[in-house]
Measured scan of single mutants.
Amino acid sequence: TTVEVQGVEYRFDNPEEAEKFAKKMAKSLNLRVELHGNKWRVE
């Protein structure tokens, strides 16, 4: 599972970890998070 934060990609073996990371990043950067296939995008 991939998390893309403002163009930078982070890879996770565990989808739940990816989701937690994406939501945490979105909250700290005041952005929103969307799931596209198996990629979380924070923008």
Rank of each mutant, 00 (worst) to 15 (best):
A18S: 02
Y10N: 02
W40D: 02
A26N: 02
E4Q: 10
E4F: 11
N38G: 13
E17W: 05
E9N: 07
R11G: 06
E34D: 06
E34I: 12
K39H: 09
P15F: 10
G7Q: 03
E17R: 06
K27I: 14
L29K: 04
A18I: 00
K27C: 15
K27H: 15
Y10I: 05
V3D: 01
L31H: 04
K23P: 00
N38E: 08
Y10L: 04
F12L: 02
E19W: 08
K23R: 13
S28H: 14
E16S: 11
L35E: 04
N14V: 09
E19L: 09
K27D: 15
T2W: 15
F12K: 01
R32M: 12
M25H: 03
E17D: 12
L35Q: 09
K20F: 09
R11K: 14
D13Q: 10
T2K: 06
V5F: 08
K23C: 14
E43R: 08
K39W: 04
E43W: 14
M25E: 05
W40I: 05
R32Q: 12
H36N: 10
N14S: 12
K24A: 15
N30A: 06
K39I: 15
N30H: 09
W40Y: 07
K24P: 00
V33T: 06
N38T: 09
R32K: 13
Q6L: 15
L31T: 07
L29Q: 05
K24D: 15
N38H: 08
K24N: 13
K27E: 15
E4L: 13
F21S: 01
L29Y: 05
F12M: 02
V33L: 12
T1I: 12
P15G: 08
A26V: 02
A18Y: 00
E43Q: 10
N38K: 07
S28E: 15
K27R: 08
T2R: 07
N30D: 08
M25T: 09
K39A: 09
P15L: 05
P15D: 07
M25G: 01
E43C: 14
E4G: 04
W40A: 02
T2A: 08
G37L: 07
L29D: 04
D13N: 10
F12E: 00
A18H: 00
V8H: 09
D13C: 14
Q6W: 10
S28W: 14
V3T: 01
A22T: 01
L29G: 04
A18L: 01
F12C: 08
T2V: 14
N30L: 04
R41V: 15
V42I: 07
F21Y: 07
E17K: 07
L31S: 08
E34S: 13
A22C: 05
V3A: 03
A22Q: 00
F21A: 02
L35A: 05
H36F: 12
R32Y: 09
K20L: 13
A22N: 00
T1H: 14
V3G: 00
K20E: 13
R11H: 14
V42L: 10
M25P: 00
N30G: 14
F12D: 00
K39C: 14
E34K: 10
E16P: 04
V33R: 02
L35S: 05
A18W: 01
V42T: 04
E34M: 10
K23H: 13
E16G: 10
V42K: 01
V3C: 12
R11C: 15
A26Q: 03
V33H: 05
E4N: 09
K20H: 11
K39M: 11
K24F: 15
R11N: 12
K39S: 10
D13M: 10
F12Y: 04
K23L: 11
F12Q: 00
M25Q: 06
V5T: 03
A18K: 00
L31V: 07
K27W: 12
A26G: 12
L29S: 03
V33Q: 03
V5P: 00
T2I: 15
A22R: 01
V42R: 00
G7A: 03
Y10V: 04
E34L: 08
A22Y: 01
K20T: 12
D13F: 09
R32C: 11
A18V: 01
T2Q: 07
L31E: 03
Y10R: 03
Y10P: 00
K39V: 15
E16A: 12
A26L: 02
K24L: 14
Q6I: 09
K24E: 15
E43T: 13
Q6K: 09
E4W: 11
R11M: 12
G37D: 10
R11Q: 13
H36I: 14
F12A: 00
A22I: 03
D13I: 08
F12N: 00
K20P: 02
N38D: 11
N14W: 07
N14Q: 08
Y10Q: 02
D13H: 09
E43K: 07
V8F: 08
F21P: 00
T2L: 14
E17C: 14
E17I: 08
W40V: 03
G37N: 10
K20I: 12
K23E: 08
V5K: 01
M25K: 05
T1A: 11
G7T: 03
E9R: 06
V42P: 03
R41E: 07
G7F: 04
E16K: 11
N14L: 10
E9L: 13
M25V: 13
V8Y: 08
A18M: 00
G7K: 04
T1Y: 15
E4S: 12
K20N: 10
T1D: 07
E34H: 12
L31Y: 06
E9K: 06
L35N: 06
T2C: 13
L35D: 03
V33P: 09
V5W: 06
S28G: 08
V3M: 01
K20D: 12
N14P: 01
K27F: 13
E34F: 13
E17L: 09
L29H: 06
R41M: 14
N30P: 01
R32D: 07
V42E: 04
R11A: 10
A26H: 02
R41T: 13
N30I: 03
V33S: 06
V5I: 10
R32G: 10
P15C: 08
Y10H: 06
R32P: 11
A18R: 00
K39T: 14
E17H: 07
R11L: 13
T1R: 08
V33N: 02
E43M: 13
F21D: 01
F21T: 01
N30C: 14
M25D: 01
N14T: 12
Q6T: 07
V5A: 04
V42G: 03
K24C: 15
K39E: 06
R41P: 02
N30F: 05
R11Y: 14
L29T: 03
A26E: 03
L35F: 14
R41K: 13
E19H: 06
V33I: 11
N30W: 03
A18F: 01
V33E: 05
T1S: 11
E9Y: 06
E43S: 12
E34Q: 12
L29C: 14
V42C: 11
H36D: 12
S28P: 04
K39L: 11
E16I: 11
H36A: 08
M25Y: 04
V8K: 12
E9Q: 08
Y10W: 08
L35G: 04
E19F: 09
N38C: 13
G37T: 03
T2H: 07
V33A: 15
A26T: 01
E43D: 13
V5M: 06
F21E: 01
M25C: 15
E9W: 06
W40C: 04
Q6N: 10
R41D: 04
A26C: 08
E17G: 04
R11F: 14
V8E: 06
A26F: 02
P15T: 07
K24T: 13
E16V: 12
E19D: 03
V42F: 05
E19S: 05
M25S: 05
D13Y: 07
E17V: 08
A22F: 01
E4H: 09
W40L: 05
N30V: 04
N30S: 06
F12W: 02
E4A: 09
K39G: 11
F12I: 01
E34G: 07
E9I: 13
E16D: 13
N14F: 09
E16R: 11
G37P: 03
R41N: 06
G7E: 04
F21R: 00
M25W: 07
A26W: 02
G7C: 13
E19Y: 10
T1Q: 10
G7W: 03
K39R: 13
R32N: 11
E17Y: 05
T1G: 08
V5Y: 08
K27P: 01
K20S: 11
E43L: 12
G7L: 03
F21I: 01
F21Q: 01
L31I: 05
N14K: 09
L31K: 05
Q6S: 08
E17T: 09
V8C: 13
E4M: 11
S28V: 14
A22H: 00
E43N: 11
P15A: 12
N38Q: 08
K24G: 11
E9A: 07
L31G: 15
V42S: 03
K24Y: 15
L29P: 03
A18D: 00
G37M: 06
G7I: 02
S28F: 13
K27A: 15
F12V: 01
A26R: 01
L31A: 14
Q6M: 13
N14G: 06
R11E: 12
E43I: 13
Y10T: 04
